[in-house]
């Protein structure tokens, strides 16, 4: 009996107990931080919209909320922001990357062709390679330019339709370019219905 208990019941019981304790602890932590995590996610999207619109803000949850609520209006399928008296249109775009989907916000001026900015909402490319599309210099180079873009070697773009590609990540750069190229036509379709 005691042998049976020691060999079979006790290990099972022990494992069960450990599992329960671990799950209760992690579930507790998860529930306690749930609202915070949700708020963070919202804040991320809002910050991407502000970046795409070219608005400046204080980089905290509160700072982002303040500027967002003051200048951004949510429309059906897109956002508008008033910057220096002019309206800018921000279009959410989703498309394939090398590994997973890339989700961006593309900001356009009133002409719906010139970019006011581009910001990444989410991406899952390789760190150090495709992941470098998140680096500020890469997204910043779209501001003031007009598509369709041509990718050139890193550090050599000079004309208004040229953007630097990322060395070692030509595929991801290409996917990103394709995504931004869709911005103008997508904007016309959603906003003007053509």
């Amino acid at each position: 009996m005691s042998e049976f208990y020691k060999e079979r019941i006790y290990p099972l019981l022990f494992m069960f107990l450990i599992t329960v304790v671990c799950i209760v602890l992690t579930a507790g932590a998860h529930i306690l931080t749930f609202d915070r995590a949700k708020a963070n996610e919202l804040s991320f999207t809002r910050r991407a919209i502000l970046d795409a619109a070219g608005l400046s803000y204080e980089n905290t949850t509160l700072g982002i909320e303040e500027v967002y609520l003051a200048s951004v209006t949510e429309e059906e399928g897109y956002y508008t922001a008033i910057v220096d008296g002019k309206t800018r249109y921000i279009i959410p775009l989703i498309g394939p990357g090398l590994w997973g989907t890339i989700e961006i916000m593309a900001g356009l001026e009133e002409d719906l062709t010139t970019f006011s900015g581009v910001a990444i909402v989410s991406q899952t490319e390789t760190p150090g390679l495709g992941g470098r599309i998140e680096e500020p210099w890469f997204t910043a180079q779209f501001a003031g330019k007009r598509g369709p873009f041509t990718l050139v070697e890193e550090g050599t773009s000079s004309r208004t339709h040229e953007v630097d590609g990322i060395t070692g990540a030509s595929r991801t750069s290409e996917y990103f370019k394709n995504l931004t190229d869709r911005a103008a036509s997508e904007a016309r379709r959603i906003i003007r219905g053509v």
Partner: peptide, 19 residues
Amino acid sequence: MPSQVTAFAVFFASIFTGN
């Protein structure tokens, strides 16, 4: 949405460029 990433490209990338 996820199906936009082609399975075939992922297969090759995971062997070579994204080993």
